[in-house]
Amino acid sequence: MPIIKTQNLTKIYKDHSVEVHALNGVSLEIEKGEFTAIVGPSGSGKTTLLNIIGGLDNPTEGQVTIGDVDISNLSDNQLIDFRLHNIGFVFQAYNLIPVLSAKENVEFIMLMQNRPKAEMDERAEALLKAVGLEDQMHKRPREMSGGQQQRVAVARALASKPKFVLADEPTANLDSKTALNLLDIMATLNKEEGITFIFSTHDQKVIDRARRIVTLEDGVIVSDVQQDV
């Protein structure tokens, strides 16, 4: 059974009576353990798709099922709670709370889940170590480089033990070397811990690291290929 299943997703934005069809019937299944890139030109609907899968936005039509839950049936508050326990998020920027240290940022998500203090502490340290930031744990975001901040974001996304991680252009603000470094960390977590990653990108070098590539154009899936890395 796939962990994510979308059926015929349509999204129409209405902007001053101008209708934008951001998604036009997207059906997609994602299995546990995938390392999938959503690619396509600007405006093709990548962000829209990830937002709908992540329960941040509602589709105009169609369904999203995560595990065995149809998230279109959830109320706003249920959806927030569902996100907290099931989905990890990495955004292009503004991922972290600027007034908290790296470790506090990672712990914050577990705090909202009401995990025991000892577990929070231990897990935050382990995750920061896994993304190679054991020396930077007590730094605030502005004291870290863009790449380091994104690594903290990945650690934070994993802290809640989500079913999968959604990353919308996580490398867009990074230079290519740092971007590949982040991808390597994600790929390792995928391989060794079996974490499912779905990320969008423009960057060909990043696309090369993906094991499955879903290409969108004008809100339609135009290709869906597997590749060996």
Binding site: D76, D81, R83, L84, F89, N95, I109
Partner: peptide, 13 residues
Amino acid sequence: RELGMLMSVGMNK
């Protein structure tokens, strides 16, 4: 954006 991020990752209302 920061508040949006907090809501996205599951901070309740």
